[in-house]
Design a protein around this nucleic acid. Structure first.
Lengths: 188, 188
DNA sequence: CCGTTATGGAACGTGAGTGTCCCACTTGGA
DNA sequence: TCCAAGTGGGACACTCACGTTCCATAACGG
């Protein structure tokens, strides 16, 4: 990995840290946190928008890769979701800006890529509904969003010190899979 | 209700609409959407920060009032949560900016007020864990965040047209209370 | 009806962030 | 060692949003 690649990585990492705290932070702040001149930042990412895009795409790549490495298409669906959760959660709160960045919200193609990255999860959920391990009275789209939302919530909650990140995978899985009610009787 | 109050309401409503689409939108855009001069906006909210604060406090008041009107401290806990969900969800996606505004994220007192508004829900959950209707192996703080997060997710998902807002209360309650797995057997 | 009150428009100064350019410097590799 | 690639800093113009002020006008209440 050459010098340029390392500088680029440094900038992206710094941008994640700074922008997740304040999505309106200046590029000077990003460059400073990266220990790099603002000129150099512009050399790699000519405009702010390009930086954001690169940032989001990098994050999406990481999520997609984490999901793929958990092999969501193999074995019992609940086990598969457990594996996905265990690999995605440690990616950390640093990715929680994915649903806060204004630029993301208003860029249709980025939202599309977000759901493309989640597609393997959607397929696993469909598989679970088909084989009877997941309840079929919930729309797949909703289940996908609820699951992803639970992970985002876990990141935010851990960020605020209300839970430990290491507990997050269990909390997310228990809550999403079994719910918060006691198992035996269905309270109506 | 005098003229000033009505203008203030108009401005707050317009600000919710505009800022929830783009949290970095200009005050001109807000004033224009409200059909009001920018001067008038500054007369009611001298600075941008004051507008945001008023906005968030207004939204928090609405949520707190909705929760209170659902009497979360009465009857079976699951029923109580059902009532809260039914009253809060219709407040609409317009409130989803509550967790996206940078100013909110970095204002400690606003976060505190957010959890104050959710306090009755937290008490209901504690009550449920005590009387055995809710599983006790999840931290109350986590359950509160997961529940609130599910409602926020429902708003966002409805906003994107992936579900109907009218279905949201059922989806939220089913998912949070019972989970996404089929009831009978516990898939390990 | 008249006067108080609220509003709208225009203009201005200010500050911050952005993007660009140029030049001196340093780092790394051939 | 020397050269080229990469970097840092300073300076600049430009844009945009913000907050303020002044004044004319419109709306409401007594």
């Amino acid at each position: 990995m050459g010098r340029p690649d390392r500088t680029r990585r440094t900038l992206l990492d710094a941008a994640v840290v700074v922008l997740s705290k304040d999505s309106a932070a200046s590029l000077s702040a990003v460059a400073e946190h990266a220990g790099v001149g603002r000129t150099t930042l512009h050399r790699y990412f000519p405009t702010r928008e390009l930086l954001i895009r690169a940032l989001v795409e990098d994050a999406l790549d990481r999520v997609a890769e984490a999901i793929a490495s958990a092999h969501p298409d193999e074995g019992p669906v609940v086990d598969a979701l457990q594996r996905v959760t265990d690999t995605v959660v440690p990616l950390g709160p640093s990715l929680s800006f994915l649903h806060a960045e204004p630029e993301v919200y208003n860029a249709r193609d980025l939202i599309r890529r977000w759901y493309e990255a989640l597609e393997p999860v959607a397929e696993a959920i469909e598989r679970g509904q088909a084989d009877g391990s997941l309840r079929a009275d919930l729309p797949v789209k909703w289940v996908v969003d609820a699951y992803a939302g639970a992970i985002l919530t876990a990141w935010d909650t851990a960020d605020e010190g209300r839970i430990w990140l290491q507990d997050a995978p269990r909390l997310v899985m228990t809550t999403i899979v079994h719910g918060i009610a006691t198992p035996p009787q269905e309270t109506s």
